[in-house]
Each structure stands twice: as C-alpha cells, then as structure tokens.
Design a protein around this nucleic acid. Structure first.
Lengths: 194, 194
DNA sequence: GTCTATAACACGATAGAC
DNA sequence: GTCTATCGTGTTATAGAC
C-alpha cells in the first residue's frame, strides 16, 4: 500500500514494478497489482489497457532508473579502473536480483517485442558504456594494450548478472561479492605499471 | 509428445524438465505438462503427488545432468587453465539459458526449501569444483601466486550465468561468447611464465 | 474516476468409474 | 493405471451503475 499522496496510476505503476521484480511477469497477476496499489479493478482498466500496458510502463521506468544509477558510477571523475570498480561495488539489494536482468528469463516478456525492447536496450547500453570507459582507459595508458574493451565489458556485466544468480541460489550476498572481487583482481592485472 | 517407448512417468518427468527450462515453475501448469507428455490428469496424479513433487523429480535429474557435463570438462586431463577453458567453451544452447540457474529467479522455487536445495547445491558444487581446479593449477605452478581460487571460481560461474542473461536479452549468443572471451584473456594474464 | 457484477476460461487438485 | 467429472479459486478482462 502506497501513500495517499500518490495518484492512482502512480501507485499502480510502482506496485507493478515491485511485483515484476519479486515475481516476474508470468508470476504477477492484475489482482495482485491492484491489491498492492490499493486500487480497484475498474481503476486499473481505466488508466491502462491491461497487464501488458502497465508492465511496459513499469519496465520502462525501471530501465531508466538503472541507466541513471549505472551512468552516475561510470561518468564519475577519476580513472577508468576506478569507475568500473565503482560500478561493480555500488550498493545493491543483491538478494532481490536485477529488476531488468531477471526479465530475460520470463517467457512472456521475451515473446513480446515491446516488452523485450527496453530490457535488450538497457543491457546493451550498459555494455557499450562500459566498453567506452575501458577504451578510454586504454588510450590514456591506464590499461595495457592487451585489454579488449568489448569482451571485457561483456564480462563485467555478465559477472554482475551471474552474481545475482549465485547469491539468490545461496541465499546470501557472499557469492556475488566473491565474484566481483575475483573480477577486480583479474582486471587489476591489466593496469599499466606506474 | 514423446515416444511411446517411454513409460508414462518418464514422459511426465521429461516434459516437466522442458517446461521448467522454457517457462520456469510459476509459468508451468500441470495441464501443460500433461499435454506435452500425452498423459491424462488422472495419470499424473497417480504417479506424482502434485506439481511440486513432479518438479522436484525433474529438477533433481537436471541438476545431476549438469554436474555430469560440467564435471567431465573439469576432470579431463591437461592443465588447469585448459580445463576451465573447456568448461567455459563447452557446447551450450545459449539462448535457452541455464536450466538450473533460471530457477533462482522463480519465487515459488526459492520459497520451497526442497525445490531450492538442488539448485543451491549444484551451483555451490560447481563453484567448489572450479576452485579446486584453480588451486591445483596454482600449486603446480601453472598460475601465479596472486590467483585466489575461490573468488575466481565465483567469477567464472557468474560469467556463464550472466552470459546467458545477456544472450537472451540480445536474442543472440554473441554477448555470451564475448563475455567468455573476455574472461579467458583476463585469466590468461595469471598463467605463470613458461 | 471508481465501484461492483459478470464472464469464460485456466489452475491445481480430488473422486470415483472403468 | 488411466479416464472423465467435479470442485473451489484465480485470471484477465468487459459492462454498466454510480
């Protein structure tokens, strides 16, 4: 239940965002959304055409939020290694998983091009942005020439996404932290000698 | 639909394994299982107590299979780096994702300790086995002393699990292959000079 | 804008005939 | 062992009153 100071559509969107994160698209029913939002059925169908419409709005907002947070880590001043490190070590609710990445395992999301698009674009953007930071670092001589920006960027994003999987399986954030630690020591080997 | 030479329970288990892989636990209904298995409702409830029972049987079998395949890569003769490489490069249906890892995003699987156990144990075993191989390689002088087996093992498994996420989002195996390539170049930097 | 009523169907399971 | 019938509930809406 949300504050009465939020409008009904706003409460519906926020409740959908939470449920998509917790239970995915397949596991989230309109009824559950309505109950969490404290809104009736008529209300939901007045503001949105149905479950897909509401989900699309929710996913887009979550995607934008993720871009903003990741972007602020990667745009920060400082060296390339430290910016990647900041992205990897940023505060996370590890056991909840990634609200965007988890949608890739949802068959109904992947089957709908509209729902799928923001998921694809967000992870693609993230990989691209990381590759830019790494390339910049290499050109500035912070990294050795052997560092290939695109594959390493994919490895960084994959480590985070897979870290969530390991953490959720274990019921503990430890494997996530361990995977990130491992990646950072590997990456540190490519720092050019000062 | 399966061969008539498979027993009914066998067809039910195999059909459940496929559906859990494709749609997850929440997205898989008893009806869908029965239809794919070519079995009636009465048949399913005669051989299994219900959806959780059938799912448990299916998950255990899939977990065992994954252990066997991963184990055969990691137990192969040869150097530690090559064995990890063999695990990373083994044939995979990348776009289908990991049949075990995907279950970590399923709320009903995570909520049931019995269903969750094989998922946890499999990924935990995999991390442990990789750590053993890496530790062995370090002791034999194949890797430099700076390589920490446990964190790197977590990074390896996370890269694979996250690689699936990236591939499914992109609708292409390319990001998976890229992430693995990146990890292998990072790992190669820790090979001791010959 | 929000509410209740209703619909047609799916879910997950049980009962009992065959 | 397998089948159909039935059950109570949930799903995803639409209709129409307020």
């Amino acid at each position: 239940m949300y504050s009465a100071f939020m409008t009904t559509p706003e409460r519906l969107i926020e409740s959908t965002r939470e449920l998509l994160w917790e239970r995915g698209y397949v596991g989230t029913s309109p009824k559950a959304i309505q109950q969490r939002a404290g809104a009736g059925q008529g209300s939901m169908y007045h503001h949105f055409s149905g479950k897909p419409d509401l989900a699309l709005t929710a996913i887009r907002r979550t995607a934008e939020e993720l871009r903003a947070v990741a972007g602020s880590c990667l745009d920060s001043p400082g060296g390339a290694y430290d910016r990647v490190r900041a992205y990897l070590l940023r505060e996370r609710e590890v056991l909840r998983g990634c609200p965007i990445g988890r949608l890739t395992m949802d068959p109904d999301v992947m089957a709908d091009p509209e729902l799928r698009k923001p998921v694809d674009e967000t992870l693609d953007w993230l990989r691209g942005r990381l590759a830019e930071v790494l390339a910049e670092g290499r050109e500035r001589g912070e990294f050795t020439a052997g560092l290939a920006p695109e594959p390493i960027a994919a490895t960084v994003v994959a480590t985070v996404q897979g870290g969530y999987v390991l953490a959720r399986a274990a019921g503990s954030a430890a494997p996530f932290d361990s995977a990130v630690e491992g990646l950072l020591t590997l990456l540190a080997a490519f720092k050019a000698p000062v």
